[in-house]
Structures are given as structure tokens and as C-alpha cells.
Simulated scan of single mutants.
Amino acid sequence: MSTIILYVIIMALGIFLARKNIIPERLKSKIGHCQTFALIFLLGVLGYKLGSDKVLLEGIHFLGLQAFTIAVLSIVFSILLVFLFYKKEDR
């Protein structure tokens, strides 16, 4: 529970900083790069954690076709939606 409160406080701090225009413009232009790096880093850590979990890897055949289908479709549609939104943003 305390971790969630910490996340909310950090998000509130970010909203406060954005509303008060405290962050300089040259730093704002680099925020996108920081977000991309953080996302790639988190995905790498998640992949490592899942790949090193012996219990999960041993029981993966029990998850079934439905779980696999849901996971694949979630990934595909997430990538598709991000691609579509970034395409619209570039115009």
C-alpha cells in the first residue's frame, strides 16, 4: 500500500511541476527520450524476471492456448495503437 502512495505522490509532483511551468524548456524537450529509455529498461527487467522464474517456465505449458492468445493479442494491439497514435502526432 505504501508503494502505491509513493507512486501517487510522484505523479502529483509531476503534475504540480507541469502546471507551474517550473521545468525549463530545454529539459522538456528531453523528457520523451527519458520516457523511452525508462520503458525499454522496465521491459528488459520484466523479461529478465520472467525468464529467470523457474516455476513459471516449468508450468508454462499449463497456461493454455487462451492465455497465450490473450497475451499475444494484447502485445499486437498495444504496438498497433502506439503506432497509429504516433503517426497521427507526426502530421
Rank of each mutant, 00 (worst) to 15 (best):
C34L: 08
Y7F: 15
Y48V: 06
L43I: 04
F37A: 06
I31S: 03
G47A: 03
I9A: 14
I9G: 03
H61S: 10
K28N: 07
L43P: 00
D53S: 11
L27D: 05
G14R: 04
F16G: 11
G51A: 03
I31T: 07
L27A: 04
I40C: 09
G51P: 00
I40N: 08
K49I: 05
K49P: 00
A18R: 12
E58C: 01
Y48H: 10
T36P: 00
L13R: 11
G32V: 06
T36H: 05
G32I: 03
R26E: 12
I22H: 09
V8Y: 02
G47N: 04
G59Y: 08
L39Q: 07
F16Y: 15
K30T: 03
A12L: 15
H33E: 10
I10P: 00
E25M: 12
H33G: 05
I10L: 15
H33K: 13
L50V: 04
K54E: 11
L46A: 08
G59R: 14
K20C: 12
Q35K: 08
A18Q: 13
L46Q: 03
I31G: 01
I22G: 07
I10F: 09
L57Y: 00
L43R: 01
V55I: 13
L50S: 04
Y48E: 05
K30D: 04
L17K: 13
A38S: 06
P24E: 03
I22Q: 11
I10D: 03
G14I: 03
L13T: 14
P24Y: 06
G59F: 07
I4S: 04
V55E: 14
T36F: 09
L57C: 02
L43C: 08
G14P: 00
G14D: 08
E58N: 13
K54Q: 10
M11L: 15
K20S: 15
L50C: 07
I5E: 02
G47E: 02
K49R: 13
I15T: 11
V45K: 12
I40P: 01
